[in-house]
Amino acid sequence: MMLFPCLWPRRWLFSQKGHLRPSQEVIREAVSIFTSWTGEEMREGECLYRATPGAAEDLAGLRVINLDSPALNENPFPIEIAFERRRREDCQCGKGAVYAGIHLAALLSKGLSARRVLWGDKPLFITRDYIATFDRDDLRWHLRYGVFSFPVLISLPGIIEAPARPREYYLLRSQGIPDAMMPDSLRDRYLTVNDPRLPRVLAGILLQAFFYYQSGDPFCPDPFCSLYHAHWQEELLRSQRDEPYIVCLRHRQALEKEERWLRG
């Protein structure tokens, strides 16, 4: 697989036990888990935002501004384009903007074409930005942890915020209880920015990307398989752990057929 991380070595996102922890470290740990399962070789490319010609103007127009409208940010202000340009030049991703995932993948595929990256290279873009897709059933945008397309997009903050937290969390939140004051028993049921479970969860999402490129289907209906398409944090945490198994029998057999096996 070809990994295009949206990273900057001096930028720090995750923290743990009082020490700042770079998102790069989370990705490295996740890649190490993933390769221990599949033996897949991972190559690293540059940031796709930088590699894509004219990305600043286009990115400004791909921002989701109204949750309930499919329309994107038409006629962006000069400040918005300047912000995208700054982000591209100084690698300032992850400021909180939400981008239309499918459109973003289409835009970044231009950067892949310019670098002659093909489907067989299994390009994977990991971003610190939020990505969303418009759901035609309820006619609103939803944050996503990943968009499975060419390239596959994975949003680091999306892993934490896109799958819904337990209902009790929103009940307490609506009563004005801040995140820091949530009871520990509840906090264990969803991911936070300093969560030690993140690398394992990301490794499972890398596995989903891998299966997407192999078979066109990244997901599995088995709620204990790492390929389960989780919509709730509890579902995500239940599927992204090594017990009772990493992947279900069907997907294990698929890996074994290709002479790959799970060593984790």
Binding site: N66, F77, V98, L143, E161
Partner: peptide
């Protein structure tokens, strides 16, 4: 003379950064 984009309903952890980033001459 100009057009606002309206107030976003989505909640994201890092939106504070964007408020600072977009502060400027509109």
């Amino acid at each position: 003379v100009l057009k606002t984009k309206g107030f976003g309903g989505m909640w994201v952890e890092r939106s504070e950064d964007l408020v600072v980033e977009y502060t400027g001459e509109v």
